[in-house]
Amino acid sequence: MARLPSLRGPKVPQQVPRLVAVFALAAIALIAARYFLVPASFGEKGHYRAAALDTIVAREKQYAGQQECALCHSAIMDARLAGNHQGVACESCHGPAAAHAANPVEAKPSVPREREFCPRCHAYNPARPTGFPQIDPVAHNPLAPCVSCHDPHQPEPPVTPESCSACHRQIVSQKAVSHHATLLCTTCHRAPDGHKTSPRTVRPGKPSDRNFCGSCHSADASSPQQIPRINLRTHNPRYVCWQCHYPHYPETS
């Protein structure tokens, strides 16, 4: 086998140009591969394929958004925004409606009327925030569909003194589902007229001692029989009632 004459004279061993050739070939292959295989939009915006954004943006939405619903159903929307479900978007109950928005006649969103649906949010669960309206689905008007009493777009119970709930809506909604639901605000609080105009300076009255609660709950009170009774003298006499019981939702404490 004829030896190739070394280009740089005898000083460079024969191995060096051979290896250099092999490595040069590998490098050229890599550079060529980079040139042909790296996607065109790679690195336009960062170390990624910018065209990927177009694919992701082009995904079809399933939920239209409540603004879209309001375009046709403005009356129902107005009713809902006036009630306790004002924060509940249409598709929260009716399911994804983008198809309906695009084709109102053929695609219809779901209308959940069955009794199982509402307890998803309103069944009692100790992990739910205190004050969030919850019922025991077994005991709360069994068998009756929720919609027979509650309008889902305006679900609040009928008795709500507007003059109080305007500011104290949360307390009202707590009380409304508690054992104290039937009590008027004025049963326990005295609200001078000035409280409505200057709520900070004119404070409403509050019960001041144990005897106030005792007028219904003490053993010798002349209140309806089903009301729970205690012995005012022996039942934790060092405390006032609301240090342990939350009067607007007494059964949770």
Binding site: M1, R3, P13, Q14, Q15, R18
Partner: peptide
Amino acid sequence: HYALTLGATDLSEKSLRFDDRA
């Protein structure tokens, strides 16, 4: 075996010393 030499078949003493050093 020839392909594996990459054609570098020089077995001079200098060349072998280069192999060893490399």
